[in-house]
Write a protein that binds this DNA or RNA. Structure first.
Length: 820
DNA sequence: ATCCTCCCCTAC
DNA sequence: TAAGGTAGGGGAGGAT
């Protein structure tokens, strides 16, 4: 970030009339203009109103981010009273960012190199009547204050709100609140996102792998071996490693990622937990939890929050993923906990995948922090030795993410995976090609992929715990207990044989939405309302991936007969019976109502008691790709909107290439604005109107065309199909950017030509606004295809600017860290 | 035989 | 307090 800032400064020609503060910063666009205007107003009103009490904050400017106490408004007044500056928008010369209550991701994303302090600094300075050392007020990223919660969730509305309605699925905000906090949801959806990402990269790939250039210096492999090389990469305790990037002081300590801060669970009873744990998940972890809880004073209950990820130092004390926080604290009382940071996980995941995709796209994405890569082609065409490439890529990942990863290599996916186990933590290991059968003998059966705790228990009952044991069992005998393919797989895997190919692309077979937490209904209408939400969510997800389904399945978890009504785990599902039932949909559909009708019918048939329900899911299957008749091409959009009577455009004229046109006045499209995120909307709407009004009266003085009246400046030829010259450019750009995950190159080119026309006709102010707007909406896009296209567009524009004005536009960088 | 539905299991 | 999701493989057993 600081790097690109540097570059920009260096590139800008050093002409005094365009110095940052007296000119060029305000050269283009309403964005800059409105910001300066606000600040000026601020300073002036402080002086003229006579409220200024001191010059305490002279030379100090603050920008308040998020909710603070005192409020932004109050801080503004304080700054005003004491000669400081309050920035409505964060600016490059802002002295401090004030924040007390923000997710650190957001803070760091927005101001990577800024000093962020707590609002108390302002208050205390006034109290002490001097500028205090701000270092004592630095925003503490480690002590994360919880976000202000909705009243309904804190129970703050009053004790009589009825317990069950406060934080159960009855609350209309439950679903989003739950999904925001569910680690399993995030792990799952992030994994899907990255699988799609690999698909996308493969589809769009040009055939060039830029990373291979870097391998030139590595040793050649002259052995000429034609073996298959499967690489398995896995980040080490992913969530913890990501969390430690900003918490260097916790490195080397036992650390765990969890919701809990180690508090006590006030409701559970020992007996109940025992019962539930016997029917639950990872047996080893369950046993450990159980042992711990049985030895606990029943009056002192434990945190049942699960540990999502723990450091190797924590593992050394016996702590495991999935373990209750209470249990973990018993094993290690000084266990450090850090909160989830799902945005950061996503960011690091992309860096991981981008690192690999520079070299090859023979990738099977497994999850957000794990993948298989077939190195065979890469090694053959570069001639690089496998171990050299692995060392190279591991250090590259480490440098790019600041997180360790481990790599296993083998002749097939099984051996690669087993090798990774040996490699961990932070290492690499090659499963030898000879003697595989012998080497497999010591592998624990639980380590075979596909052997979970149920299969393992079955095997253990027969006295089988290692692959060596299993190798002695003939296939037919094995298939008595594990019929068909199940037995066959075991038979092959325990011998180190695995012929399952890597799947580089993947087509989805189902889309589902389920919640098995916080389900506590008393009335049927509550169930109905929630089920509708689930169907809407399912429909949304179908549409996101452009699929429709022909069949829907309702999945229910119902409290088991003898299970207690209140679960040991807060709002958990306890011991349940599982029911699923499917129905046909009217043709391929993604319509939420159609899905709901089908699912509601099933629910009626099953006639479940809403009060007994502990979990609900909606799954759509038999999928088919949705037709996309609408083209998202920019030019098409432009033409479509042109013919629509709702858009106020001048009479359509024949597309005369030589027609002389003037850009129409800009207008802010309310429809467009409605669709924008609130922060962005506010930013745009606030002063746009004022600015344009003010501007009509007096054109910008700092423009290179200042000597000419605005109308003259616009007097050059602008072709009729120049999108930027249209009144509804904002709408066109918005729809274009929203219409797809990657722009068509012809559209980018078209826009580039349009921009160049503007530059040539000396219409820089409008162009600047439009580029600023484009940046804002592209920045919101979670697609590096858009980001890079935007950047190449800007690059072309800057070239033209240099040609004509010998100067560049001041363009803010995109915030995306994945693409650089 | 083959397909469909309803389960169970597994992985992250 | 706590945030127990999501997709796929595969078997049993019935319908075709």
């Amino acid at each position: 970030m600081a790097d690109s800032e540097e570059k920009k400064k260096r590139k800008r020609p050093e002409r005094p009339e365009y110095e940052e503060d007296n000119g060029f910063a305000q050269f283009g666009g309403y964005m800059e203009a409105k910001i300066s205007k606000l600040e000026q107003q601020f300073a002036e009103s402080a002086k003229t109103s006579g409220i200024q009490k001191s010059n305490l904050f002279s030379g100090v400017s603050i920008f308040v981010n998020g909710h603070t106490n005192p409020s932004a408004e109050a801080l503004k007044v304080i700054m005003m009273e004491h000669g400081g500056v309050f920035h409505q928008y964060e600016r490059s010369h802002t002295t401090f960012i004030i924040a007390s209550n923000l997710p650190d991701v957001k803070v760091r994303k927005m101001m990577p190199s800024k000093t962020i302090i707590r609002p108390e600094w302002v208050v205390d300075c006034v109290k002490e009547k001097k500028i205090l050392d701000h270092k004592k007020y630095l925003y503490d990223f480690n002590h994360k204050v919880s976000q202000p919660k909705l009243l309904a969730f804190t129970g703050g509305a009053g004790k009589d709100t009825g317990f069950s309605e406060v934080r159960t699925a009855v609350n209309p905000n439950f679903l989003s609140e739950f999904y925001n906090n569910s680690r399993l949801h995030h792990i799952s959806t992030l994994g899907l996102t990255l699988k799609d990402y690999v698909n996308e990269l493969r589809e769009k790939h040009s055939g060039d792998f830029p990373g291979r250039e870097d391998l030139k210096d590595l040793k050649r492999d002259d052995s000429g071996a034609s073996t298959k090389f499967i690489m398995h990469i896995d980040m080490d305790c992913f969530f913890v490693s990501v969390g430690l990037r900003s918490r260097a002081h916790l490195r080397g300590l036992p650390v765990a990622v969890t919701h809990s801060k180690g508090g006590r669970n006030p409701v559970s009873t020992t007996g109940q937990i025992t019962e539930e744990l016997l029917a639950w998940g990872d047996r080893e972890v369950a046993d450990e939890n159980l042992k711990n809880i049985l030895g606990t004073n029943p009056s002192k209950s434990l945190s049942l929050s699960e540990i999502a990820s723990c450091s190797y130092e924590a593992r050394a004390k016996g702590i495991k993923n999935g373990m209750f926080m209470g249990t973990a604290l018993k094993l290690c009382p000084d266990l450090q906990t850090i909160p989830y940071d799902f945005d950061q996980y996503r960011e690091v995941s992309y860096i991981l995948y981008n690192s690999i995709s520079k070299y090859t796209l023979d990738i099977e994405a497994v999850s957000c922090d794990e993948m298989f890569v077939d190195l065979t082609n890469l090694l053959r065409s570069t001639g690089v030795r496998c171990e050299d490439f692995v060392s190279h890529i591991r250090s590259e990942i480490r440098n790019a993410t600041n997180c360790p990863c481990s790599v296993g290599i083998g002749g097939n996916r099984l051996l690669a995976r087993l090798a990774t186990r040996k490699a961990k933590p932070d290492g690499q290991y090659f499963f030898p090609a000879d003697n595989v059968l012998k080497l497999m003998e010591d592998i624990h059966l639980k380590d075979l992929p596909g052997v979970g705790y149920s299969t393992f228990d079955k095997l253990k009952e027969k006295g089988l715990t290692t692959c060596g044991h299993l190798q002695k069992i003939p296939l037919v005998q094995l298939q008595k207990d594990f019929p068909g393919k199940s037995g066959e797989n075991l038979y092959n895997l325990c011998r180190g044989e695995d012929n399952r190919p890597l799947n580089f692309t993947r087509q989805r077979k189902s889309v589902s939405t389920e919640v098995n937490y916080g389900i506590r209904f008393t009335r049927k209408t509550e169930l109905e309302t929630f089920l509708k939400q689930l169907c809407e969510e399912t429909s949304k997800r179908l549409r996101e991936v452009g699929l429709r389904g022909k069949s829907v399945t309702l999945k229910l978890m119902i409290r088991a007969q003898d299970a207690p009504v209140e679960t040991a785990k807060f709002m958990g599902h306890g011991i349940c019976d599982h029911i699923t039932k499917s129905a046909s949909l009217p043709g391929f559909t993604d319509d939420p109502e159609a899905i709901f009708r089908a699912v509601w019918r099933i629910s009626e048939e099953l006639s479940v008691d809403p009060a007994e329900l502990r979990g609900i899911g909606v799954q759509v299957t038999k999928l088919s790709k949705q037709e996309t008749p609408k083209s998202s091409s920019l030019v098409n959009l432009f033409n479509q909107m042109k013919s629509k009577p709702t858009v106020s455009l001048p009479e359509k004229k024949p597309m005369d290439a030589v027609e002389v046109k003037q850009p129409e006045d800009f207008e802010v499209d309310p429809e467009v604005l409605k669709a924008l995120p609130p922060e962005l909307r506010e930013e745009i709407v606030k002063d746009y109107a004022n600015w344009t009004k003010a501007n009509k009266k007096s054109p910008l003085k700092t423009s290179p065309e200042a000597s000419k009246p605005q109308s003259t400046a616009r007097n050059s030829n602008i072709s009729a199909n120049n999108i930027l010259s249209k009144k509804n450019w904002m709408k066109i750009l918005t729809q274009w950017v929203n219409s797809s995950d990657s722009p068509k190159s012809c559209d980018v080119e078209h826009l580039s030509c349009n921009a160049v026309e503007f530059i040539r006709s000396r219409n820089i102010c409008d162009l600047y606004s439009q580029l600023e707007y484009l940046r804002l909406i592209v920045d919101q896009k979670d697609s590096c295809f858009w980001h890079t296209s935007y950047k190449s567009l800007i690059q072309g524009i800057q070239v033209e600017m240099l040609n004509i004005y010998e100067i560049q536009l001041k363009i803010t960088d995109l915030s995306c860290k994945r693409c650089k």
